[in-house]
């Protein structure tokens, strides 16, 4: 199947704002799926509610656009009934870690064979830019007009601690690495969690001195620290500078997964 066939061409152009990174993440996900040679009828995309979750509406295969935060629970049902189905979940930072936080940690604990692509744009985009559990400390949003005064989640550490078999983080700037990570996630049995730091110029950037999508991409390029370098720095006693974040593959392990068809 060609890459273009994985898009619902009759639904494009999509509803995302100009410069929104969701489209980029969609590209990387579909490219990974295409490279692996999956067939349409054996692939299912599931998503919750939010900008990120509209992605499932643009993929050309069976797709389930569900309720806020519950995508992983729906996906659990699909996967347990049809274990040979490749189930990919699109979720966002609010969807996954606020309203869906409990489903998220339990899906990781069960280590169910799903691939979760979490588009983390640090904000609730669909409702117009409210603070999320992943809004950085000090950032301005419509519900944190004086700066976010709570600490954000580190979703990758959460997924790792909860038991996911594969955990990685990239940004919408690192498209090659992201595609590779989603590919790995699809190949590793058990729950694969790929967090993608993504720009939301409309709601997040405009309030935080990054009106242009390209400015946000520059920010990702400058602040993303490769895991190997971060590890080296840590060993040398150098802490991560404020505002920087680590990208790379954090976990790849083979704990017993759920929802994998036993080989006959």
């Amino acid at each position: 199947m060609n890459l273009e066939d994985w898009y619902r061409q009759d639904r494009l152009p999509h509803i995302y704002c100009a410069g929104c990174g969701n489209g980029t993440v969609l590209n990387c996900t579909l490219r990974a799926v295409q490279e692996l040679g999956f067939r349409q009828e054996e692939t299912t995309f599931i998503s919750g509610i939010g900008c990120s979750s509209r992605a499932s509406g643009y993929t050309s295969s069976d797709s389930l656009h569900t309720t806020h935060g519950r995508a992983l629970a729906f996906a659990t049902g699909v996967k347990l009934v049809k274990p040979h189905q490749h189930v990919i979940v699109f979720t966002g930072d609010g969807d996954c870690s606020a309203i869906g936080g409990n489903h998220f940690i339990h899906a990781c604990r069960r280590n169910i064979d799903l691939t979760v692509v979490c588009i983390n744009n640090n904000i609730y985009g669909m409702t117009g830019g409210q603070g999320s559990p992943c809004t950085p400390y000090g950032a301005i949003t419509t519900t944190t007009p004086y700066g976010m005064h709570e600490q954000p989640f580190d979703l990758c550490k959460l997924a790792e601690a909860a038991g996911a078999n594969y955990v990685a983080r990239w940004t919408s700037y690192h498209v090659k690495e992201l595609t590779e990570a989603i590919r790995s996630g699809l190949e590793v049995p058990g729950l694969s969690f790929i967090e993608v730091m993504t720009q939301c110029p409309t709601s997040f950037g405009s309030k935080n001195k990054m009106r242009l999508a390209t400015q946000m991409i520059d920010m990702f390029r400058e602040n993303a620290v490769l895991k190997v370098k971060a590890d080296r720095d840590t060993a040398a006693g150098k802490p991560l500078e404020p505002g920087k974040f680590i990208v790379g593959e954090f976990v790849r392990r083979h704990n017993p997964p759920l929802g994998v068809e036993e080989s006959k």
């Binding site: 980029t24 590209n27 700037y173």
Partner: peptide, 13 residues
């Protein structure tokens, strides 16, 4: 293919 993969609007081919 960097441009095509990055293009959020699937506009480059």
């Amino acid at each position: 293919g960097m441009c095509q993969t990055t293009c959020p609007d699937q506009a480059i081919s």
